[in-house]
């Protein structure tokens, strides 16, 4: 959401016309704070408070199955986390998943946006059909693709068998590497539409005259794309990438539904690990340390993108 702060420009600093006007302005400002406070309080209670509570918990030995042992243990949880091979392995897998799925979603989303941007009668049809994958719950998309890749009863098995290709009767979910395929396919299927819609909105802000004059100057289609489309699309690209990168980095639902992190831990990701520590091990001290590290990593990722937006002058 890289737009200018809406309203900031319109609101402006109009000179007060007379005294009464000034007191009215002051009253309106007070009202403004009053209107913003409920939303801020709500967000403070549901987002900021849990974050601070994590900070407290992360310095405790806090396991629900061992009542009465909420002793303060200093940095013990963090020290354990820094050398926790399970977490580090999950982090590597998560980054790999993020890189692959975001790259594919970006490429496919850009292609899709360019197709839809060609004004023709099929646009509405495409938009409706790509919005359905985006709108269904991730649990649904994961189950759909799980069924699709199921051994014997799945379409993939059926198609590979009938085309006489190798790989029929594969048990996709039993292989540490192949189990990623349905996960990534499902994620790409569900999230490409989001990228496409954001990029499409960006494409629609590029004035057509630019292309026309480029064409007059003898520019080829790919030159126009490279010199006009991509640079002017940069803010939209960055916005789409911020949101996709973060949510891929925090992926949970699709992994939980499709593989539960398996086989073994070969598809386990950091959010799954964190959930397991909280809700299965009931280890809220260690879980809190994991949660804070994940939060810091997510904010760092966001900060990198926002910084790029800022330095390029795309965000005013």
């Amino acid at each position: 959401m890289a737009s200018e702060q809406p309203g900031a420009a319109a609101q402006g600093n109009r000179p007060p016309l007379w005294g009464r006007r000034r007191s009215v302005e002051r009253k309106r400002a007070a009202l403004g704070y009053g209107l913003v406070v409920p939303a801020l309080l709500a967000l403070g209670a549901v987002a900021l408070y849990p974050l601070l509570y994590n900070l407290v918990l992360s310095f405790q030995h806090h396991v629900l199955t061992e009542p009465g042992t909420n002793a303060v243990v200093g940095f013990a949880n963090y020290v354990a986390l820094a050398t926790d091979p399970a977490f580090l392995g999950d982090l590597v897998r998560t980054l790999g998943f993020t890189g692959v799925s975001v790259a594919v979603e970006f490429a496919a989303g850009l292609g899709l946006a360019l197709v839809v941007h060609q004004s023709f009668r099929g646009r509405g049809l495409i938009r409706a059909s790509i919005l359905i994958p985006w709108a269904v719950p991730t649990a649904v998309s994961a189950l759909l693709w799980k069924a699709f890749f199921q051994q014997q009863s799945g379409f993939v098995d059926f198609a590979l068998t009938h085309l006489g290709l190798p790989g029929s009767h594969l048990v996709w979910f039993n292989s540490p590497l192949l189990a990623w395929v349905p996960i990534i396919v499902s994620d790409v299927w569900k999230n490409t539409p989001f990228v496409a819609l954001i990029l499409l909105a960006g494409l629609q802000t590029i004035p057509r005259e630019l292309y026309e004059s480029a064409q007059c100057d003898g520019a080829r289609a790919w030159q126009s794309f490279w010199r006009i489309t991509l640079p002017l699309l940069r803010p939209a690209i960055l916005v789409a990438l911020i949101f996709r990168t973060l949510s891929a980095f925090l992926v949970f639902d699709v992994v939980y539904v499709m593989t539960g992190g398996g086989p073994g831990t070969s598809t386990e990701v950091i959010s799954y690990y964190n959930w397991y520590k909280f809700m299965v091990s009931l280890n809220f001290g260690y879980g809190a340390a994991v949660a804070l590290v994940i939060t810091l990593l997510a904010l760092a990722l966001a900060a990198v993108y926002v910084r790029i937006l800022h330095t390029r002058g795309d965000l005013t």
């Binding site: 967000l43 987002a47 849990p50 974050l51 509570y53 909280f278 809700m279 949660a291 994940i294 904010l299």
Partner: peptide, 16 residues
């Protein structure tokens, strides 16, 4: 707030 990981909220909110 929209960048806060949902997973990080799970533990504290569960306890609360």
């Amino acid at each position: 707030v929209s960048f806060f990981p949902q997973i990080a909220m799970v533990g504290p909110l569960f306890l609360v």
